[in-house]
Design a protein around this nucleic acid. Structure first.
Length: 310
DNA sequence: AAGTCGTGGGT
DNA sequence: TACCCAAGACT
């Protein structure tokens, strides 16, 4: 948990009751107001959940939805994707961004076939060992696909817990072991109920307890939120600056990589170097970006001077 | 362990 | 308009 601020009044409910209140209020609100996201619908497979979680890494729901629907329709099982060339995954990824995720998702499908007989494992450590699956995604799959009791801590939950339980305006920049402990303490004992509570926390963080302009008056936690309590007591902790380092984009290698990959992704056949030269004027930076794409396995050079998806 | 890795919408 | 931000992972 974020360090409890000394400014938080201590005349509220006792800590255990407060925790139960947060999960209960969030769960009740979630039952009535959760968005109807396709990967939450009954019948979604563990593979479908895993695909959604990888796509949602640093990418908003609105952009993920259509790509996820196409993806699971085309590749309903990991084996279906593993049977394809990795370039097909990159192409299907479209413009979701961070296309190495597509490559890792393909590698994940292959690994699931090799290590787990084509079935997504339900064991947290086995999930963590899969390509592209880290602390957040492994716990999300274990909880949402297999109804296990694990803290699921993403940027939304970190922020919500920092505010509602910690009385702070913002969370730290990255998930820490302390965040996992603090969130675990809020979960109900029953595994299935804990999984729903985690989904509810995430949803609240995504649509109410948002970073810049929190909608406290429409939040079911407003009456028990430690941050609001501090505010009401006249010791409000103001929103601080950016929660992470500003990431510039214009003029970076990332922009150039995106432009180069976009050319190849849009072509049916290998493209000549000249087709890449036209999208960025700086030879040195363009060459560096191209080399990094090849090194990452996002592009290949099947014939000297021609470039294609792997 | 701080940097790197896309892309687009909201304010 | 710039800037912030988005269900992180990896090195």
């Amino acid at each position: 948990m974020p360090r409890r601020s000394a400014t938080v009044p201590t005349d509220g409910p006792s800590a255990p009751d407060h925790r139960h209140l947060l999960a209960g209020l969030a769960t009740d609100w979630f039952a009535a107001h959760a968005r109807d996201l396709p990967w939450r619908r009954p019948g979604t497979t563990a593979w479908g959940v895993l695909v959604s979680e990888v796509m949602l890494q640093q990418t908003p729901v609105s952009r993920v939805t259509p790509v996820w629907l196409d993806w699971v329709a085309r590749w309903p099982t990991p084996a279906d994707l593993a049977a394809e060339q990795s370039g097909e995954a990159i192409r299907a990824w479209g413009r979701l961004g961070y296309p190495r995720r597509a490559l890792r998702l393909h590698a994940c499908a292959v690994a699931v076939g090799e290590r787990h007989g084509g079935e997504i494992p339900d064991d947290l450590d086995q999930l963590l060992a899969l390509p592209g699956v880290g602390t957040y995604t492994a716990r999300a799959v274990a909880a949402f696909a297999f109804r296990q009791r694990h803290p699921v801590v993403d940027t939304n939950v970190r922020r919500l817990v920092a505010r509602a339980a910690g009385g702070l305006a913002d969370a730290g920049p990255a998930t820490t072991a302390a965040d996992l402990v603090a969130t675990e303490a809020l979960l109900p004992a029953d595994p299935a109920a804990a999984a729903v509570a985690s989904a509810a926390f995430m949803e609240l963080g995504a649509v109410r307890c948002v970073a810049r302009t929190p909608l406290c008056l429409q939040c079911p936690l407003v009456s028990v939120c430690a941050w609001r309590r501090a505010s009401d007591a006249g010791v409000a902790v103001a929103l601080s600056g950016p929660s992470r380092k500003p990431q510039r984009y214009a003029g970076t290698d990332r922009q150039v990589r995106g432009l180069l990959l976009g050319v190849v992704r849009g072509a049916d056949v290998a493209v000549p170097r000249a087709a890449l030269d036209v999208v960025w004027a700086d030879d040195v930076q363009r060459d560096r970006a191209l080399a990094s794409l090849l090194a990452d396995g996002l592009l290949t050079e099947p014939v000297r001077g021609y470039f294609a998806l792997p």
